[in-house]
Every structure is written in C-alpha cells, then in structure tokens.
Design a protein around this nucleic acid. Structure first.
Lengths: 200, 200
DNA sequence: GAAAAAAGCGAACGTTCGTCTTATTATCAC
DNA sequence: GTGATAATAAGACGAACGTTCGCTTTTTTC
C-alpha cells in the first residue's frame, strides 16, 4: 500500500514533464515505461486506462500549480502584491527545470479546447478556477485601494491570461528568452493603467 | 496535371479543418482518406510523407490567413483602420464554418512550440511574420498620427497576440461566445491607451 | 517467518499508424 | 481514338498503440 503510491507519483512527475512538451495526447504508455525502466503493463496497472492516466496528469499539474504559484503567494499581502506574486510565480514555475515544455495546464487547455470529453471538462474547470483566482485578487486589490474603483476584475484577469499565453508562445516557439521580460513589462503597464495615485 | 491539383487542394482543405480541431499531430492519413472517400495510398501519393502533408497544411493555412485576414484589410486606409480590420478579420475568419477548431496557425504553433524540426521552424517563421505585420501596422498608425509618438510597435503587437490567444482559448474551451466581444473590448481599450487626442 | 496482498513483469491481443510496391484506372496531348 | 502519363487503388509490411491475461516477485501484515 506504500510502494505503489511512490511509484505512481514518480510516473506522474515524469508524465507531467513529458506532457508539457508533447501534450497529453503525445503521452504514450510504452515510452513512459521505458523512461522509468519498468514494464508497460506494470505502469498501466496503476491507471485503468490511458484517459485515466491523462486525467491523473492534469490533477498532478493542478497540484503543482497550487504548490508553486498560489500557496507561496499567500505570504504576500493581499491585493496587488499578491496578484503580482501569482504572476511572477507562474512565470518562474513555467521556466523551472521540471517543466521542459512550459506550463502543462495552458498547453493541455489549448490541446483539448476542441475535443469534448472528460479531459476538456476537467481542463475547462481548471482554467475557470485559475481565472477566478486572478479576478478575486484584482477585486481584493480594488478593495484595498491598490487599484482604481471601477476596475473590472474579469476583464483584467482575461488580459493577464492573454499576456501569459503570448509570453509562453513566443518564449518557446521563437526560443526567445526576452519574451518573459516583455510579458512582465506588459503586465506592469496593464496594472499601471488601473493603479491608484499614479494614473496618467 | 489538372485533376491531381484539384484533388490535392480538396485534401488540404479538409486537412486544415481537421488540424484546427485535432492538431497537426492528430491528422491521420487513413481517416483523412476515409472522409474524402479515397484510398489511403491514393491520398498518400500526393505527399511524400506525413510530415510533408503537415507542412503543406501549414502553407495552406498561411494562404487562407492571407486571403481572409490580410488582403481584405488592404481596402481600409493604412494605419489604425487597417490594424483594426486585421484584428476583426482574424476573429471573423477564426469563427468561420471552414474552421471548426479555430485558427489553425496559432493552434499548430502552440502544439509544436516544443518539438524541434521543420514544422516548428515553419510555424516560428509564420508567427514572426504575423507579428511583424501587426507591428508594421502599428508603426504606420503612429506615422499617420493615429497613435501617439512613443508607442512601441513590438510591444503592442505582442499584446494584441495575447488578447487573441486568450479570446480563442476561452471561446473554445469554455464554449463561451462572449469571449470574442471581451477580446475585442480589450483590444479597443488597449488601443485607446495609445490613441492620439483621446488620451486620458 | 508464514500468509496475504500488492506490485510488477512478459507475452500476446486486435487496431491503427505511416509507408512501400505493384497494378489498375482515368486523364490528357496528339 | 490511341498512346503516354498522371492519378488512384489494392494490399501488405513492420512498428507502435492501448489493453488484457496469467504468472512471478516483492512488499506488507500478523
């Protein structure tokens, strides 16, 4: 009852890394087993089907996101500092060595946005929560007086997501490390538009 | 020498539509042949390999992009009107019935951003050109006095891309048609920040 | 340490994949 | 119309896919 969970965890960590590069569909049980030096059937037994493996991968990625992005941001004061920390942590996590293909959640979301099924439903819910968290941070920042009254949380969260998506795409597709600073600059400019006290 | 090109064109149109939903990797010669009611080998003969088929699909998508997005925008006056037309045409094209999975270029770019090879190179070049075109439009808009002097074309093009990516993702993953108006609203707000005469 | 349970392995399954070779049919120039 | 050529079809190939089945090994429990 103990060993199994350790193995399963190791499988999922490798699977998340692979999925970040090749996508959830690019995962193959055979090559995953090879990389982990175990048999196909032994690996397969931990999940009832490939789809269950893919779902487990998404859950693992969600957990990682929570651990590396959200939770550390709680150490920052609520409002704008916390919002900035989330964005910064997100970028940092994306660039970590554990994720050779960048954020596995946005990659999977883009991959499955047109394939109805359990995976799309799960990813849709995951991204909705992510957006809701960003919007909540914006709302708190308004209430704390960091951002102007009238700032639309949903719209701002939407634009932050856009900046992230563009940064990741350009960083990876162009192999241009300057994409991340450019994205963070866009984020700063975006926030400045709504910041209290320094509004133009 | 005539019939073959007609068939090839029909194949590519179907392939682009399929790729917009399932990705370039999701293309399969067998199912494509079934859908077109021809044999696998007959279809295959038009392309030397699957990779060549995928490359042809990207070229076809580029041509479609040019025909539906860029070329019509040339009827608008250079500068801001043309930039707005490009964005508007892009969204309209994305939502057309021929593209059940949205913009095949951004989808493919996200799919291959971590897979080195000829396809990534081609997609990288394609997206660079797209961004360059957007930036050029911004630059012309500045020169025409539509946008403020000091507006950074590259940064603005980057942000427009981000808005597009977020719109497409939310529209398709959430099945939320409001994502497109939200994206266009973000675009308007973004432009307003740099517009001459109406700056806050 | 023995018994019970969990974990992993090896081989095979039916499919589908891309690709190749060989043959047949359709198209086009003359 | 005929002959050359292009276009498509039929079929088989080896490999990889997800999945299933017994069987063996390892781990855990008592």
């Amino acid at each position: 009852m103990r060993k199994g969970e350790r193995t399963k965890s190791a499988i999922l960590n490798h699977a998340v890394a692979t999925a970040s590069q090749l996508g959830l569909e690019g995962l193959s049980i055979g090559s995953l087993a090879d990389r982990l030096e175990m048999s196909k059937s032994g690996l397969f037994a931990h999940f009832g089907s490939k789809e269950d493996l893919q779902i487990a991968v998404v859950h693992q990625a969600r957990q990682m996101f929570s651990d590396h992005v959200f939770t550390p941001a709680l150490h920052e004061p609520a409002g704008l500092p916390r919002l900035s920390a989330i964005v910064q942590n997100w970028v940092t996590w994306t660039r970590s060595a554990d994720l050779p293909g960048g954020c596995p959640i946005t990659a999977a979301a883009y991959e499955y946005d047109d394939r109805p099924g359990a995976l799309r439903d799960l990813l849709s819910q995951t991204l909705r929560e992510l957006r809701k968290t960003l919007a909540r941070s914006v709302r708190v920042a308004v209430e704390a007086g960091h951002l102007r009254v009238g700032t639309e949380p949903e719209q701002l969260a939407f634009e932050i997501l856009g900046i992230y998506l563009a940064s990741q795409l350009e960083a990876r597709l162009f192999g241009d490390p300057e994409a991340w600073p450019r994205g963070l600059a866009s984020f700063e400019t975006l926030i400045d538009r709504y910041r209290t006290g320094t509004q133009t």
